[in-house]
Nucleic acid binder design. Structure first.
Lengths: 332, 332
DNA sequence: CCGTTCGGGGACAACGTTGTCATAATGGCC
DNA sequence: GGCCATTATGACAACGTTGTCCCCGAACGG
């Protein structure tokens, strides 16, 4: 029941452990006949080399990278993960993932656990604003790339999307179709992207020449019920909103469900694209950005660091694009 | 740039390396003043214990479990992953994932790589039918649970969903709404679930008293174009299909897109539920089963083995349920 | 005052592997 | 035949940690 080691293989094959090592690592200079004996022994014993021991001895790479994100189960992040995996695979690395659920202490726990495992690098979607805990790790040579949101208090490579520009564009799109009372429904303002998108909303209003009505801004709801209530409120007000910008895919979906079957639906533009948006009635106009592109960009940055890139930390902002499908053109 | 080791900490704190170990592991019998000196040194050097070394020395668990599935980026599998992660977290384990992309050799490569890392257990969505390569690993004490599909040639714990019963139910549902020419659009017959669902389709036809028309069965298409062509063919035939059962969520989505805007759409029931199915026009009737439940059941089984459960391999079949939303009731 | 106990701490080996260096056997060349 | 280069192999230490065993000094009871 104990696992066979090189020692066991060596004994069975009647060679030294070093010869086994040579065979396992395809090193030159082993007599074919000897190699064959060793391979037979390996097969017979079901030997598989212990990577922990190997990595310990060699001291170099463990061949793993750690990814900490909000929720591996969220299609957006699973797209990110997949892209990371693809890059990692080309570089012969395995991916370890963990979900922080927006809990900063959980994020920290995961990241440090990964460091204990000596991951070659870390990809993090920050849950909180404090990342000082990473400084010793970064100093010790573990590259870190932040994803989707910047770190609070350390400088490091960061890949973001153009939240502000995208949301502003959403507002302008709605304004171009005659809307003047455009609401913004965003996630908790503690979340970087939610805040940025709120800024984009304001910028869009300004550029469209629409006065800002704070009563049209609702931040925080993120489950179906609270989104429903917020929408109800916005539509029943003295001067009801005729259009809504939703701050992320979850909120968009909750809003669509809340509005299903309603008469005189407000126009809607959602941040984040999602599958089937084109098949709904009306098809949903979105600010699209590519989860895979985000993951790939971050992974590329990380591997550049592992390849020795010593340039100052970079901040990459990926473009977004408005995909007009119809829901933003509903009459005011 | 070299990482601090316990030795470095010991030197700085003026104690032996064993005392550092004791502090790091919260072992009793260290004078508080000594412990404090050690902790200060740890902090100053940014020491973090090397889990590879620890696991090697202790020989026990590495605290990881490996998950091989088709595609981490597919929402269905990311739901599975999330559920696995939750169970693993409660047991203090990390999750390593890898996508096989339905390639048996890739599956094998990933699984064996994970074994080299000495994962505590393996969760596999089989890509192929040959799993003999796992026998030595299982014999060496690595528990393996197969997920969603059974292994071809080894007996091990397996968690499946009721593919046959579910698909049969779909056919009966359509038949109950007057359909007699019901088509089945499934994935490659090499894939276990596709085959099972085809069997379910046939069983459903038999139970509904519908004669089997092989021209109504199309296996294989799984990208948008081929699904589109298959549907076109089915609808343009001399005796066109009035209803379709789609074999998985990808095919369902492709079919919906192909049918968008068509007149006299065939009725449709899809295997696998998906987000927004209820918001489409008409809302899509599906055979629903729960990715999270699948992941949880498999992880529970795995941890039971790790806890020493030595019972014969189990096969768990999770129930599915037909969620009638309307698309199955379209007039024949 | 001596033997015992106990708290605190250290020396050393071992986990499974690989890098370094040494050694034995072989063959070719003068 | 003697010498060296080459090939095939092995002995040994080291990676960073932890388990085992041992030691030292202080406190305590008789």
């Amino acid at each position: 029941m104990r696992r066979a080691t090189m020692n066991d293989v060596a004994r069975l094959a009647g060679v030294s452990i070093k010869t086994v090592s040579r065979v396992v690592n395809d090193e030159a200079g082993v007599h074919p006949a000897t190699a064959e004996r060793v391979l037979a022994a390996i097969d017979q014993l079901g030997f598989r080399r212990n990577l922990s021991a190997r990595n310990l001895r060699r001291g170099s790479s463990t061949g793993t990278i750690g990814v900490v994100l909000e929720d591996v189960g969220n299609p957006f992040y699973s797209g990110v993960t997949r892209a990371v995996e693809e890059v990692a695979r080309l570089r012969g690395r395995q991916v370890i993932t963990g979900s922080s659920d927006e809990d900063p202490s959980r994020e920290r726990e995961l990241a440090l656990e990964f460091c204990s495992r000596r991951v070659d690098g870390l990809l993090i979607v920050p849950a909180g604003l404090q990342h000082g805990y990473l400084v010793p790790e970064m100093r010790a040579g573990t590259p870190v790339v932040f994803l989707d949101r910047p770190a609070g208090d350390v400088v490091a490579d960061t890949v973001l999307v153009d939240n502000i520009g995208g949301t502003a564009e959403a507002v302008l799109h709605l304004a171009a179709h005659g809307h003047r009372r455009i609401a913004f429904l965003g996630d908790s303002p503690d979340i970087f992207t939610a805040n940025e998108r709120l800024r984009g909303y304001r910028e869009g209003c300004a550029r469209a020449g629409i006065g800002l009505h704070e009563s049209l801004v609702v931040m925080g709801p993120h489950d179906e019920d609270s989104v429903r209530r917020a929408l109800h409120h916005l539509r029943r007000a003295a001067e009801p909103a005729t259009a809504v910008v939703t701050g992320n895919n979850r909120i968009t979906v909750h809003a669509l469900r809340a509005l299903a079957g309603a008469v005189r639906r407000p126009a809607l533009v959602g941040f984040d694209d999602f599958e089937l948006a084109d098949l709904l009635t009306p098809p949903v106009t979105v600010i699209a950005h590519d989860a895979r592109a985000l993951g790939k960009a971050a992974a590329d940055l990380l591997f550049a660091r592992l390849d020795g890139d010593g340039a100052p930390p970079r901040r990459v902002v990926l473009p977004v694009r408005l995909v007009a499908r119809g829901s933003g053109e509903v009459r005011a």
